[in-house]
């Protein structure tokens, strides 16, 4: 058995507070990731956004083990009942528990937000890199297609795509993702063009590094912060878009719960059961506000001019 070198363990590992080290050590404090984190933590509204998003994510993840009824179970003896001890947020037009549907609906909304932005990033970022880095004809074709798609309003494009693909949550996510792609192409292209002109990229060319290496080592890490900010803000837009499509009947199909489809039903029972309309709307508002605050906070924290 080999002996451990004497220097492998720090002298007093348990007594060191990493935050104190970062604050005291000018080298560590100057590291961009520490500076960004410090700035982000001091941004109260961003922390509130993080809390809101975290709350809904936990709610969606732990939906199966929460002590709530089955969101699709109907109870004809409890149709449109006002909030009570048995049903905290009331029941809907066929006696389903509104709280249970709200909790399970968080899954559809968050999934739609994350998956559709994932699709937009997966297509948009590589296309933007191609357009920005190679320029010329590649840029011309990609940029003209992006402009054409940007000319169609986001929701109209998503509705048209969802209509032609057929109504379902998956198709709604694809439609929203494809509609959001041009924004990422344009953003990435602009960032790549500005990073490409930096001295360190010219240096990398000069020492003969291959294009894939330059892209992965120098271009990609430098375009990541604005893409991250845009992705966070687009999740907020995508959640509203999914709720809008479900509200129109083009997203999540019944009986599976989604906040948009809950509102669609609720609008027919406004006078008799206003609670059916209130909670899904508040949930959409809070989660979208959370992502907007988080995105604004990230933008401020990652903006070098703010330091």
């Amino acid at each position: 058995m080999m002996a451990q070198p004497a220097t492998a363990q720090p002298a007093t590992p348990a007594t060191i507070d990493p935050q104190t080290v970062v604050a005291d050590d000018p080298v560590l404090a100057a590291r961009p990731e520490n500076r960004v984190w410090k700035k982000f933590r001091s941004h109260k509204s961003a922390m509130l956004g993080g809390f809101l998003v975290g709350f809904f994510v936990l709610m969606a993840v732990f939906a199966p083990i929460l002590p709530i009824p089955d969101p699709t179970a109907t109870d004809w003896g409890a149709v449109r009942k006002a909030p009570s001890a048995a049903h905290w947020l009331g029941t809907d037009e066929i006696g389903r528990d509104v709280l249970a549907r709200l909790v399970w609906g968080a899954r559809a909304s968050l999934m739609a937000g994350v998956v559709s932005v994932g699709i937009a990033v997966a297509f948009g970022v590589p296309l933007g890199i191609l357009a920005g880095y190679f320029g010329g004809w590649t840029d011309g074709i990609i940029s003209r297609c992006t402009e054409a798609l940007l000319a169609v309003p986001f929701l109209i494009l998503a509705i048209a795509l969802a209509a032609f693909l057929g109504p379902s949550l998956t198709n709604a996510m694809i439609a929203i993702g494809l509609s959001a792609t041009p924004v990422f192409v344009r953003l990435t292209r602009g960032q790549v063009i500005s990073v490409k002109a930096e001295d360190y990229v010219e240096g990398a060319h000069a020492i003969g590094l291959s294009t894939p290496k330059i892209l992965s080592r120098y271009i990609f890490p430098n375009i990541l912060p604005p893409v991250l900010v845009q992705a966070t803000l687009t999740i907020a837009t995508a959640i509203i878009a999914e709720a809008s499509l479900s509200f129109l009947g083009l997203g999540q199909q019944p009986p599976a719960p989604s906040w948009g489809s809950m509102l669609n039903t609720a609008k027919n029972f406004l006078a008799q059961a206003p609670w059916m309309a209130m909670w899904p709307g508040i949930a959409i508002f809070l989660v979208v506000l959370g992502f907007n605050l988080l995105g604004d906070g990230l933008r401020d924290a990652l903006d070098p001019r703010e330091h």
């Binding site: 709720a243 809008s244 509200f247 509102l263 309309a277 209130m278 709307g281 979208v288 605050l293």
Partner: peptide, 14 residues
């Protein structure tokens, strides 16, 4: 920011 986060169809219903 609240105006940007409220789904307008919900605001309409309310």
């Amino acid at each position: 920011l609240s105006g940007l986060s409220i789904p307008n169809f919900w605001l309409g219903i309310m």
